[in-house]
């Protein structure tokens, strides 16, 4: 179990990440209070036995809001990665398939151009352009959260597509692929049966690290008011509204969502690094040195 995550650090990351996912799924059962129930009498109460993380300026329970906020943060980060992995891997494989042609060159140049600008900058710029109100995309009514996660997912594509492409290119040159060609297996068949499974490991590692980036982007975008809209709690918008109270001494408003962000990012990074170690081929051929 511990080895499956690449050691104790990776295992710790997996545990924390698992706990967070659990909390976000079962938020309605776990959260002690309604996260949006306003109660002016209880406003700005310090953490105590009734409210472990205190209450905010509208008297809402901070702990409940942090738990519910994990929903928004993890949903955005998670679905974005799902979109990114699906389309990124597909495009990466497609570029490998058409290698040697102008199409391959065109795809790779575009991907490189997009990834030359950091994701955070892209996200803020694009959300700014598309606005924060619910929009009508075709038959769908799209909330600002959904817009954010779709945009983020699209922004993940270049990283994942290039990663897939590079590892797939390494695989198609291998002799076992040549052996499959000699068996008369078609190029597309080889891509799916041999190449794809062998280049997924780095993609999974990268996806885990992108989850952490997604949390940060969601927080940053919500912090500047472009992401998840109040009153729905998200760690980013909680941080933004707690900002004004830091100077007057109500530290719990910003410290707890801030800590949640840090903890999640650290957890996913630990897990990602652990998985990287785990997938390192040297672990399976430890005797390779003694020649």
């Amino acid at each position: 179990m511990v080895n499956g995550c690449g050691g104790p650090a990776g295992f710790a990351g997996a545990c924390i990440a698992g706990l967070l996912v659990f909390a976000s799924i079962f938020a309605p059962l776990i959260a002690p209070y309604d996260p949006v129930a306003v109660s002016i009498i209880d406003k700005l109460m310090e953490p105590d036995a009734a409210h472990w993380m205190g209450t905010d300026q509208s008297g809402r329970d901070v702990l409940s809001r942090v738990i519910w906020g994990s929903r928004a943060s993890l949903a955005v980060a998670g679905f974005a990665v799902l979109i990114g992995v699906t389309l990124g891997v597909a495009i990466g494989l497609f570029a490998t398939w058409v290698r040697g042609s102008w199409l391959e060159q065109a795809i790779m140049r575009v991907l490189e151009a997009v990834s030359s600008i950091p994701i955070l900058i892209w996200a803020i710029a694009l959300v700014g352009i598309f606005g924060v109100r619910d929009a009508q995309w075709g038959p769908f009514i799209v909330s600002s959260e959904t817009k954010l996660l779709v945009l983020l997912g699209l922004l993940y594509i270049p990283t994942l597509a290039r990663l897939t492409y590079v590892s797939a290119l390494g695989e198609v040159g291998a002799n076992y692929v040549a052996a499959r060609r000699l068996q008369g297996v078609g190029e597309l068949g080889i891509l799916f049966s041999d190449v794809l499974p062998n280049c997924l490991s780095p993609v999974i590692v990268q996806a885990t690290l992108l989850l952490a980036i997604g949390i940060i982007v969601e927080a940053a975008v919500s912090f500047v008011g472009l992401g998840v809209q109040p009153p729905t709690p998200s760690w980013g918008n909680m941080l933004a509204s707690g900002r004004d109270y830091l100077i007057s001494g109500e530290w719990w408003l910003s410290v707890f969502p801030g800590a949640a962000i840090s903890l999640t990012v650290v957890a996913f990074n630990l897990l990602g690094d652990g998985l990287r170690d785990r997938f390192d081929p040297r672990h399976s051929t430890s005797m390779g040195y003694a020649t």
Binding site: A174, N175, Y176, A178, A179, R181, L182, Q183, G184, D194, P197, N198, P281, S284
Partner: peptide
């Protein structure tokens, strides 16, 4: 063409890449 592919096979140098590691 298929018959030729099957009739003429290759054995590769064992560099660790001649068999799919997975």
């Amino acid at each position: 063409e298929r018959a030729y592919r099957h009739a003429v096979q290759m054995v590769f140098q064992d560099s660790g890449s001649s068999l799919n590691p997975r």
